[in-house]
Design a protein around this nucleic acid. Sequence first.
DNA 1: AAGTGGTCTAGACCACAGC
DNA 2: CTGTGGTCTAGACCACTTC
Lengths: 250, 250
Amino acid sequence: MVTNNLKMLVNCVLNKYYMIFEELEAAIRNGKYPPDTILPSENELAEQYNTSRETIRKALNILSQKGYIQKLRGKGSLVLDLEKLQFPISGLVSFKELADKMGHSSVTIIERFLNTQPSSLLQKEMQLKKEDSIWEVFRVREINQERIILDKDYIVQKYVPGLTEEICRNSIFDYIEKELNLKISFAKKEFTVEEPTEEDYNLLDLEGFHSIVVVKNYIYFENATLFQFTESRHRPDKFRFVDFARRNEA
Amino acid sequence: MVTNNLKMLVNCVLNKYYMIFEELEAAIRNGKYPPDTILPSENELAEQYNTSRETIRKALNILSQKGYIQKLRGKGSLVLDLEKLQFPISGLVSFKELADKMGHSSVTIIERFLNTQPSSLLQKEMQLKKEDSIWEVFRVREINQERIILDKDYIVQKYVPGLTEEICRNSIFDYIEKELNLKISFAKKEFTVEEPTEEDYNLLDLEGFHSIVVVKNYIYFENATLFQFTESRHRPDKFRFVDFARRNEA
DNA sequence: AAGTGGTCTAGACCACAGC
DNA sequence: CTGTGGTCTAGACCACTTC
């Protein structure tokens, strides 16, 4: 607990450009900088935040990548309309974080929680040895009394020790980042549409649906080790993925 | 034609950091820097390319965002396995560019090409006036003799004049960027799954399929004007979207 | 101790908008 | 012409990994 607070303190002090990004993001979200207006210039911001222009530019670049602003040379940084671009909750976000943001009342039901050896398929997909044991966690997400999503997580035990059912009922990402102090860094995601399996029909409310949206996630730590594979199976009517993309991400 | 070549020449000369990114990308793709090896250090690269370290870092950051490398502090930049992370063709890419990259033999059939007034729905979605006329282009993408994708494009005429059927048979993006010299900058994308419409059944080979993947694209120029709305309707069995995401894009 | 990437700075020159 | 963002530089200090 103490170490957590310490960590948060350090995080607050560290990374000037990221703090500035967060402040500007909040200011845009709460309407201090409304859509279709121009932010203060980079030089002005550098003065305001008592920093150099390059540091301001790092903060602005994050805003730009996330779709908050569009830079117009010779003019300034235009605030984009978040309503129109509708919260691109892309990136690498857990269900818990998403549900919190959306203000949904959601229930998580643990359908399976066990420690086992990986199947040969999983060994190949995660490049594991036979001996490596894994946590196998199946969770059903219920929204408005309907079973909408089935999350099948496979987590390498040696990297994420001490997992419990209680943790899975809340947020595995929270546990990894806040308790174990490990840094989740990147993921490869793959979206496909498949026929529902017997398992899908048993665990989800699929009356009248003939397909299921499958999102496979390969999730890596900062040191580039693959620690988790997640297969997320969504009822198609409730699935919606919004992304913001730049043509030349620079 | 002459202006085009001039422009390309300028583009080749400009942007040192982007050129370095492209060289490194090519070097990784062609195996000069194999997976699980470490790139030359930032200082070494700065010397090699006769530039400053910050410029090298900009190039490396693009590689990192696109999933080519993972930076490890104290160690170096690790080359990630592209096979494992399988060409994340995300971002903002046209069908033509994608088909070219994959080496697919694809055919594009123009089902509709006309200049018209926007429907009231489209007026709202694209924030147009009644008077603004638009190009309405429906294209079916055929792969291996099967009609897989229906692309419905709505393009604001005043921003993209002179469109022809011939251009649509090739690449509209090419025309906009190379002929009109306009810069496509960013897009909001939205993925959903829907019931096929009568139109889908008429224009695509959908025997035995009960759903369709809908990708809506709102595409903007560099000056933040919305010039194109595209609805891309995919047969579910052939749809696959791969993305690379970083948790804190910095 | 040496080398690595991560951050930050102060200054320079450029291309572009707008007056 | 002035102010804007876009690029590039040279140098500094830090935290981390490795020996």
